[in-house]
Design a protein around this nucleic acid. Structure first.
Lengths: 174, 174
DNA sequence: CCCATGGCTGCGAAATCCGCAGGCTGCGAA
DNA sequence: TTCGCAGCCTGCGGATTTCGCAGCCATGGG
């Protein structure tokens, strides 16, 4: 044996259209694309041919799928680091409570370069936002002068990072 | 002109040892390595030659530096996705309060495959942990049966994700 | 002074990426 | 039914990139 096929090519109804969208607006992924993503979660630079062997596709097919996944914004292949080791002294998670529609608030946060991560949540915060800053002054400035003044924002609570212990991207690889 | 040098090669004191460590234990990075990381934050598959042109180094030198950065664990090149689009229905941030030394608690969290992100913080939570699960049952199980029973853990508070709005890795690129 | 170390360059050989033509399948229109 | 279209895959050269290695230079310790 040589290559465990993740999805047998002739078994399924032959419709790997990952272009169709669910009501959510996010593309629907078939098993093969999932397997490709899994490969790239282990190593973002793995050659297409190796991926093809693992998922049962030709090199060219893998290349086309990866390109589409990137274009669609389903995944991105990037270098990730611990910001603290790359010169950013202060990092914090900010919990936010706001009135009315949360979308505009979330969009405003998304537009800020210092904000790296924005998620709308259920619980005692409406929105969680992760912030990466150069130093304390910068952090204070972003929170007080840019976030707390956004229309609708009622209150915020900050959690300054002391130490990053884990950072993984290998869902699917377990 | 062709290639903006990020760091002139002959100007600096000629000591790009990124192997020396700060008291923190994290390697100290020079400007060139930072520039390389920046390039790979934009595109994790960018060819070494292109990076070299951008930062003023040969292809081979870039390759060696990247390899070292990966080996040292300073950065990782991976595909990142929104878990919700890849079949994981439930995701949550969990704020944790614990007694005594936090390290063992953080380590225990780090060891759980469902836990993707662990950070020790200052503020009304001692630790923040992000969890990726298949469904509600799975999430509940992890929080109640695995986290809340850890020795030292006093209380937890969960924030279930409703919608991921932003996810970036381009600090340095701004 | 001499040698060991670390980092960079340059260079072929091997592997990879890339674009393109062609084939197959499912589907909807005529 | 048949035709034509669209989506996806394969195979194949040519261009590019990756990879390993030998050699060079500067620094620093003995």
């Amino acid at each position: 044996m040589h290559s465990e096929r993740v999805a047998s090519r002739s078994a399924e109804p032959r419709d790997p259209r990952d272009s169709r969208e669910s009501k959510n607006g996010t593309p629907q992924l078939d098993a093969v694309s999932l397997a490709i993503i899994e490969q790239l979660q282990e190593d973002g630079r793995r050659p297409y041919a190796a991926i093809g062997k693992a998922v049962g596709l030709s090199e060219a097919a893998v290349r086309q799928r990866v390109q589409k996944l990137l274009d669609q914004g389903v995944m991105q292949i990037v270098a990730v680091t611990d910001p603290l080791t790359v010169g950013f002294r202060r990092q914090a998670m900010v919990g936010i409570n706001a009135d009315g529609d949360l979308e505009p608030v979330a969009d405003a946060l998304t537009a800020m370069p210092e904000v790296e991560y924005v998620v709308m949540t259920a619980g005692s915060f409406d929105i969680l936002a992760e912030i990466v800053c150069e130093d304390d002054d910068h952090l204070l400035d972003v929170i007080n002068k840019r976030i707390r003044v956004l229309p609708g924002v009622r209150s915020t609570e900050s959690f300054v990072y002391l130490k990053l212990k884990k950072q993984t991207y290998m869902w699917g690889t377990r």
